[in-house]
Measured scan of single mutants.
Amino acid sequence: MATGGRRGAAAAPLLVAVAALLLGAAGHLYPGEVCPGMDIRNNLTRLHELENCSVIEGHLQILLMFKTRPEDFRDLSFPKLIMITDYLLLFRVYGLESLKDLFPNLTVIRGSRLFFNYALVIFEMVHLKELGLYNLMNITRGSVRIEKNNELCYLATIDWSRILDSVEDNYIVLNKDDNEECGDICPGTAKGKTNCPATVINGQFVERCWTHSHCQKVCPTICKSHGCTAEGLCCHSECLGNCSQPDDPTKCVACRNFYLDGRCVETCPPPYYHFQDWRCVNFSFCQDLHHKCKNSRRQGCHQYVIHNNKCIPECPSGYTMNSSNLLCTPCLGPCPKVCHLLEGEKTIDSVTSAQELRGCTVINGSLIINIRGGNNLAAELEANLGLIEEISGYLKIRRSYALVSLSFFRKLRLIRGETLEIGNYSFYALDNQNLRQLWDWSKHNLTITQGKLFFHYNPKLCLSEIHKMEEVSGTKGRQERNDIALKTNGDQASCENELLKFSYIRTSFDKI
């Protein structure tokens, strides 16, 4: 039985969820670079991206490699990797027998973001014989899940209580170790020597080791999670996991709180800001991140802002960003909400898709409305799209047979046209069989910064309504002859009103 693990408890099935942008060198404390989270699957090609990484700022997932063999891993080693800020997950990587050479110096898994409450997941690794993470000293947050690894031993010899604050939620089941077939031998045991430290858990006094050649490092209890030197002297209180010299914040392997210019500090002093819960960055760093993602459509890219001495992905609820200094300031009234469309555009074809934009005031991208039916549609669209004030790209209304009016965009005031449909149009209306009105132009103002209007096959939309939009939106004169079809717009509506004058002759039985 794995020490510190839980057996036999019912657990939810383990679901495996399925960018080499360097964020800056980590400095003297770390020998390499800070790398983003990685999802490495199918083959070993991307694994080489770990070569210079000291910190993975995010998670590391290595999974679904069915053609790899043990010899493929023999020359692979990433000794610079010290810390993973989120979680480490391995799933069905064939041929991998140990992690001792792959990650010989991995010391800390912070667990800032977890995989279903777990910071370390080893699942269905069919050839893994031992973990071998002999320098792993601290899992700051989260638990361990090690399950269905039929060859995995050296679990009962690990004292997880020396690595985690609590072992109650560890789930370590259905491994070879369960069948008591392992016969784990710690260093020196074969020669009758006791080389590794022994600890007591559940009444068992057991030597602690990761492999037959690597003991588990056990520091004096007084050192807590700070770690200790090879001689057993406690590291500085700002260290986490390990250090090369005692009581020196510049000799830590990793930091308990924050890293700044080669030393570990309790908090980031001005003019620095907390970033990702582990390091200090200056304003320029946060500003660069903001600008890199301002026009990016890459998933996970955030326009970072500053709030409460932190550089964070977005302002919290009730705050909006001051564009001059990136500071989050309290909103006066309802907060603006910028919604970034991942692929640059979004099609609204149902109430469900409209709900995804609920509360958005600025759309960074283009909207395509293609709704053919739905219950209580006008009210639903207004509830979900009615706060949109600005669209950076274009607005396209296409084959939306259920629409009679666009009044559900009740606050839309600006279409920038930074991206144009077919390279020309910022407003595009095609084949809307029941569209009769755009907006009530006596109450609604709309500016279209650039781009043209396109109207074709809107049989109940009168040309007068379209011409009014040209005047109000500032697009009059931009359109070419064929942009607004004269014969297919309003051709099934009563669009022309003329005053009919009647004269009559009164007659009676005795007068003409």
Rank of each mutant, 00 (worst) to 15 (best):
Q204F: 13
T45V: 12
L60M: 05
Y272A: 01
I185E: 03
A254I: 02
C228E: 03
P334L: 09
N170A: 10
K67Q: 02
R256Q: 13
F116S: 12
M83E: 12
N149G: 04
E97H: 07
V144N: 02
G232P: 07
T211S: 09
I56S: 01
G241T: 11
N138S: 15
D165S: 06
V218Y: 06
C228G: 01
D184M: 14
N150Y: 05
T45S: 06
I222F: 09
Q287W: 15
C53T: 00
S317H: 04
G188Y: 08
N257H: 08
Q245V: 10
N175V: 02
G142H: 01
I306A: 04
T45E: 15
C280T: 00
F91C: 01
R46T: 03
T250A: 09
E314F: 01
N179L: 05
R145T: 03
C234G: 01
S317T: 12
C255R: 00
I158F: 07
E57S: 08
N308P: 02
D277K: 09
S324Y: 03
N202Y: 12
D288V: 09
W160S: 01
I185T: 10
Y134H: 01
C209G: 04
S98K: 03
M65H: 07
M137H: 13
L289H: 12
P70M: 10
N117P: 04
Y94I: 10
P197C: 06
T267L: 03
V200A: 12
G203V: 07
G241V: 04
G37H: 06
I222A: 14
T140I: 08
H212V: 05
S161P: 02
K224S: 09
G203Q: 08
I172S: 13
I82T: 08
L136R: 01
Q204P: 14
V126A: 15
L128V: 03
C328M: 02
W210S: 08
R162F: 08
C153L: 02
P79K: 03
D178G: 15
I146F: 07
V305F: 06
H28Y: 11
V108G: 01
I122W: 00
E71S: 11
E207P: 15
L47V: 04
T250H: 06
Y87C: 00
R208K: 14
P36V: 05
N43C: 01
F78S: 02
T329E: 01
L164S: 08
P269W: 11
G188H: 12
R263T: 11
Q303E: 15
N322L: 14
I122E: 01
E124C: 03
F66Q: 05
P36D: 01
I201V: 14
C235D: 00
T68L: 09
N309P: 02
I122Y: 00
F103A: 01
E57G: 03
L99M: 11
F91G: 15
I222G: 13
S143I: 03
C264T: 00
P36K: 09
P79L: 03
K80A: 09
L96C: 10
Q299G: 06
L289S: 11
K67T: 06
G142K: 01
P70K: 09
G300C: 09
D177L: 10
D288H: 07
R141L: 07
P249V: 03
F103N: 00
S166M: 15
P104N: 00
S112E: 14
R263N: 08
Q61K: 14
D72H: 03
S98R: 02
D261L: 08
F103G: 00
F115W: 13
D39G: 02
P334V: 15
A119L: 00
D248V: 03
G318Q: 13
T140G: 05
G333A: 02
H28V: 07
E238K: 03
N308W: 12
D288T: 04
P270I: 14
D86P: 00
L133E: 01
C335Y: 04
E33D: 15
C252L: 00
R110V: 04
D178A: 15
P330Y: 15
P270E: 08
E207N: 01
L260W: 04
S54E: 07
Y171W: 11
S323A: 12
G300V: 10
D72K: 13
G318S: 09
C331L: 04
H236F: 02
K251A: 00
R263P: 02
I146V: 10
S213H: 08
F103D: 00
N149K: 00
C228M: 02
F205I: 06
Y87R: 00
I158G: 04
N295C: 06
E49Y: 07
V218L: 12
S112D: 15
F73G: 08
P269I: 08
D39R: 13
E266W: 15
Q303R: 12
Q216A: 15
S324F: 08
G37S: 07
L114G: 01
V55N: 02
L289R: 12
L136C: 04
D101G: 06
F91E: 02
L106W: 01
C234L: 01
L326V: 05
Q303I: 11
S324V: 15
R69D: 01
C268E: 00
G192K: 15
G300N: 06
N195K: 10
E57D: 15
V281I: 10
C264R: 00
G203A: 10
D277V: 04
S166P: 12
R298Y: 13
N195C: 08
F78W: 03
D177Y: 05
C311S: 03
K148H: 08
L60I: 04
E181R: 05
G37F: 06
V144E: 01
K251N: 05
C311F: 04
P31S: 15
L63R: 08
M65W: 02
N149E: 00
K193S: 05
Q245H: 13
L44C: 04
M83C: 09
A254T: 03
I122A: 06
Y273F: 15
Y30R: 01
D159P: 12
G32W: 05
G333W: 03
Q204A: 10
L81V: 03
L76N: 01
T250K: 03
C252S: 00
K67E: 15
N195T: 11
K251I: 03
R298P: 08
L64S: 00
G318W: 10
E238W: 05
C215Q: 02
F205K: 10
C35D: 00
C243Q: 00
P316F: 02
M321W: 14
I172L: 15
E57V: 09
L155A: 07
L332V: 03
E168Y: 04
Y259C: 14
A156N: 15
E71F: 11
Y304S: 03
S323K: 05
H28I: 06
H59Y: 08
N325L: 06
L289A: 09
C196S: 11
T157G: 07
I312M: 10
Q61P: 00
C293M: 01
Y94F: 07
I139A: 02
F78T: 01
H48E: 14
D178L: 13
